[in-house]
Write a protein that binds this DNA or RNA. Structure first.
Length: 912
DNA sequence: GGGCCGGGCCGAT
DNA sequence: TGACTATCGGCCCGGCCC
């Protein structure tokens, strides 16, 4: 037997008995030796070995007499356990064989003959038996699996499919025990005792099933437990075309162990006889026991405990060194005792979400992520009508060190603001306190100490018979008082925050609620406003007002619930669902369905349910085609801009002042194109992986975006100004000089480079989950208006005004006696400006959706995926603008034509 | 001494 | 080249308070 280390292959899975473990372990070590994960595992193992050393030295201090006494005490305990042994029942554990992999192989038979695994590149969920021969197993990262088995086919998880099959399986099992307990999608326990008693009274017909689907041939099963389970497995196969293994025994622990004996597609029944049971369990290696993981195994192995029988032999020492609960567990194991009741927990104990991302230390990003996770968790709380009292923040550093920080609240709540505040306070405290804290790679928010929103029920029942208006006002009134208490409680802790974080926090609150309330921060922290939900005048600081609105919105939810209640369901339905999903000592199926083994966030129904500050997003099928379209536009634009720059530089047409301005425009377009390409690639990457993830790259691109859009628009303004100068002040040579133009160009560049900095550093730019990009969220705010004016409206309006002024000027000029060439010249420049106007109108037309969005967002919330939609136009505008530049810039056009012709001539010549 | 709180660790799927 | 999940339950410990 291989010695337990933290990185060895876990060979306890069925189908992995005959592996060359040494070879596989060597390959795994090789694949992961340089990773931080490996180093962390080494640290963990060393720490555990240190603890083992302490244990061993403690053991040395015990006298033989002490050990003998402990052994006698253990024996007495074993005797007691023996007396409570219940051999009267017969449990069955059904385990679907490589469930996810089997579903995939059924859907795609080609996969049946290749080693294959289900999951993501990050983590595998399960593997088929062919892959297991290579050591590929569940909970193994994809890259190691590929190292072990280069031909491995990895199929992404599709929980929808598995859920359909799982429900078929569970339905069949429920016919044998309606109180069955499921452990996830692929496992279930059933107590067959009652069914077996009734079974003898069943007619043969009731025990007869078709041999094959749609076949007339039938098969009749007998009345024994063995045959009953064969019947269950046969019916499962008929329903799903997937095999299941089963184990039968007098308790659940033994039944589970039995289902593993004849895997796959087999079953095993353990006789309900003490000697048989002891003989069976004592010969098993400890790692087969549910509840003994790597760490416990390592500790037990250090005491020369390899099998369950060794546990028995070392019972004296175990009694002396283990915690009572651990000792109790081990004694139950070595006596073959197990649970004989399928218990159902009353209430889920905690709810939370966590996500892994590329390591980052950027506190802004971390706080924003934390907020998203809190929102997601609170949404779940609210939708299930549950309150919580304890919030926990979990973080994992890039070195795989995990920290959890939790805080108990003064009262039960489901307020987004309270929970978010609390968890962000915990995060800030960590970030502040530990300056050496490495970058983080995971963050999680969890709430616990849950209770049902019980007070809702009588209120709802009572008021549902009255007018809804009364309900809301009554409820809201009560809630305001509640929340004020909570707000007071929170104030004390706010003192711990440093100023930087406070400013970020306030900014966020402003952003979030700018559509709801106006707060005059300049005068004081206190202001009056009207609540958009209950229409009451509110007096207080931002926090209190926000919290009030938060609660009012919950009140709004209550009203909705009342309406729904009258129509269809009771408000308890959701909660009951949750209870029903929760099984004894097993993960609720709904939760298990969510489990994933890849790096992507939770996916259900092929969609991703994520929260940002305002919306829930689903992955849409049109994302990818649109991303590709955008990429085509961006790449075309970048290539065009590069070609233009190349031509201008190599043909030396840049020596003219006007061309310097065109170079400036092309350069701006090039940067803007690169920005759009980066954004599109970023979005495409996230869409493809169906993840929401961002790092400072996203912020940097946003910065470059705002800068380059400014550069682009001002470059056209400079061109217009230059034309204007040429006409209005043809003798003002200084203004037409290269020096002056370069000065203007430099000036606009400096303005455009500097202006987005405050946007970045004051957290105005946010990662918008739905749109997968970083932008200033649309909405009525000074920043939005200033931004729109600074980089768009001002240059565009100026160009239009210059054009109008020039039209008037040329008209005036033509009325007076003017040198012909000067008039001609002016008309030509006017034509130039007209072209610039046509170019600008492209920008205006295709930028219009963006501007409309901004304006609409002043009055109501922006539609979902708004930026995705407007960015299609912006990407397209870039290509059109570059084509327009070519069209209106004569020297560029002629140069390009000459080159194309030249090359064509060359080709002809070569061919000839 | 018992209960609560906050932190850490383990295990299962 | 580097690359190792998400969610939940449960247990234990030390520190603190009553």
């Amino acid at each position: 037997m291989s010695r337990t280390t933290f990185l060895n292959v876990d060979d306890t899975k069925a189908g992995m008995e005959d592996l060359d473990k040494e070879k596989i372990n060597k390959l795994i070590q090789e694949a992961s030796k340089n990773s931080k994960f490996f180093k962390q595992q080494q640290r963990r193992e060393e720490e555990n070995r240190r603890r083992i050393e302490v244990k061993l030295s403690k053991i040395k201090s015990f006298s033989t007499f002490q050990i003998e006494q402990a052994e006698k005490s253990a024996d007495r305990y074993l005797n007691q356990l023996d007396k409570t042994r219940d051999l009267s029942r017969i449990f069955c554990h059904i385990d679907m064989d490589a469930f996810y992999a089997s579903v995939e192989m059924r859907e795609n038979p080609a996969l049946q003959h290749v080693p294959m695994a289900v999951g993501g590149e990050g983590m595998l969920s399960t593997s088929n038996y062919l892959a297991r021969q290579f050591g590929v197993r569940a909970a193994m990262p994809g890259f190691i699996a590929r190292h072990l088995c280069p031909n491995l086919v990895i199929v992404p998880c599709d929980f929808n499919k598995y859920r359909v099959d799982s429900s078929k399986v569970m339905k069949i099992i429920s016919e044998y025990d309606e109180n069955y307990g499921s452990c996830g999608l692929d496992e279930a326990f059933a107590d067959l005792t009652n069914h077996l008693q009734k079974r003898s009274t069943l007619s043969e017909e009731q025990r007869t099933f078709p041999k094959e689907e749609n076949s007339t041939e039938t098969i009749t099963f007998g009345i024994t437990a063995e045959e009953t389970v064969q019947e269950i497995r046969h019916r499962i196969y008929l329903a799903t075309r997937i095999t299941a293994s089963a184990g039968m025994a007098c308790n659940m622990r033994l039944a589970k162990l039995c289902s593993d004996i004849n895997k796959p597609n087999g079953q095993y029944q353990l006789e309900s006889n003490v000697n048989v049971i002891l003989n069976f369990i004592r010969n098993l290696p400890i790692r087969k026991i549910k509840g003994i993981g790597k760490v416990t195994a390592l500790h037990l192995e250090s005491l020369q405990i390899q099998t369950v029988n060794d546990i028995y032999l070392k019972r004296g020492i175990l009694k002396l060194i283990e915690y009572p609960s651990t000792f109790d567990f081990l004694m139950r194991v070595c006596n073959g005792c197990g649970s004989t009741t399928i218990e159902h927990d009353d209430l889920q104990k905690s709810i939370g979400h966590e996500t892994t991302f590329n390591g980052t230390s950027d506190s802004l990003q971390l706080i924003s992520l934390c907020r998203d996770l809190a929102k997601k968790t609170v949404d779940e709380l609210i939708s299930d009508r549950i309150l919580c009292k304890r919030v926990t923040l979990k973080i994992k550093t890039v070195n795989f060190e995990i920290l959890t920080r939790s805080k108990t609240l003064s009262s039960y709540t489901d307020s987004l603001n309270i929970i978010t505040d609390k968890v962000i306070t915990l995060l800030k405290h960590e970030l502040d306190q530990d300056l050496e804290l490495p970058a983080l790679r995971l963050m999680g928010v969890r709430v616990s100490d849950l209770k049902m929103k019980s007070s809702d029920l009588p209120i709802l029942q009572f008021f549902s018979k009255k007018s809804t208006t009364t309900t809301i006002n009554e409820n809201t009134h009560d809630m305001i008082e509640d929340i004020d208490d909570d707000a007071d409680d929170d104030e004390g802790e706010e003192e711990n925050l440093n100023e930087e974080f406070l400013s970020i926090e306030n900014q966020y609150n402003e952003d979030c609620n700018s559509k709801l309330i106006h707060i005059d921060d300049e005068n004081s922290n206190t202001s009056t406003t009207t609540c958009p939900v209950c229409q009451k005048m509110l007096l207080g600081d931002n926090d209190k007002i926000n919290k009030h609105i938060d609660l009012c919105l919950n009140g709004e939810m209550i009203r909705t619930t009342i309406k729904e209640q009258d129509q269809q369901t009771s408000p308890q339905t959701n909660y009951n669902k949750r209870i029903n999903l929760t099984q004894s000592k097993v993960t609720p199926p709904a939760k298990r369905q969510k489990r994933k083994f890849n790096t992507t966030p939770q996916r259900t129904n092929g969609t991703m349910t994520l929260q940002n500050n305002s919306t829930t997003i689903d992955f849409q099928s049109w994302f990818i085609p649109i991303d590709i379209l955008n990429m085509i536009c961006c790449v075309s634009a970048v290539i065009l801009a590069l070609i233009f720059l190349f031509i201008i530089i190599f043909d030396k047409v840049y020596r003219k002042v006007g061309m310097i301005l065109v170079v400036n425009s092309c350069l701006a377009e090039f940067i803007f194109g690169i920005y759009l390409l980066a954004v599109t690639l970023f979005t495409f990457h996230n869409d493809l992986k169906q993840i929401y993830f961002y790092d400072s790259f996203c912020l940097i691109t946003a910065y470059i975006g705002y800068m380059s859009i400014g550069l682009q628009n001002y470059s056209y303004l400079l061109q217009a100004i230059y034309r204007y100068i040429l006409i209005v002040n043809p003798l003002g040579l200084f203004y037409q000089s290269v020096k002056f133009q370069v000065f203007l160009i430099s000036f606009t560049w400096i303005c455009c480079i500097i202006y987005p900095f405050p946007l970045v550093f004051t957290g105005q730019i946010k990662y918008l989950v739905d749109d997968q990009l970083c932008q200033i969220p649309p909405g009525f705010s000074f920043v939005t208006i200033f931004n729109a004016f600074y980089i768009y409206l001002f240059p565009m309006i100026s160009i239009v005004l210059i054009y109008l002024k020039m039209v008037r000027y040329v008209r005036e000029m033509s009325k007076h006696v003017t040198p012909v060439n000067r008039l001609f010249h002016a008309q030509r420049e006017l034509k130039m400006i007209r072209r610039i106007i046509s170019l600008v109108s492209i920008l205006i037309a295709l930028g219009l959706p963006y501007q409309t969005l901004i304006i609409v967002s002043f009055f109501k919330s922006a539609p979902k995926y708004h930026f995705r939609i407007v960015f299609i136009f912006i990407n397209a505008s870039l290509v059109f603008v570059l084509i327009a530049i070519l069209e209106i810039t004569e020297p560029l056009k002629t140069s390009l034509i000459r080159r194309i012709n030249g090359r064509a001539t060359n080709v002809v010549r070569t061919v000839a």
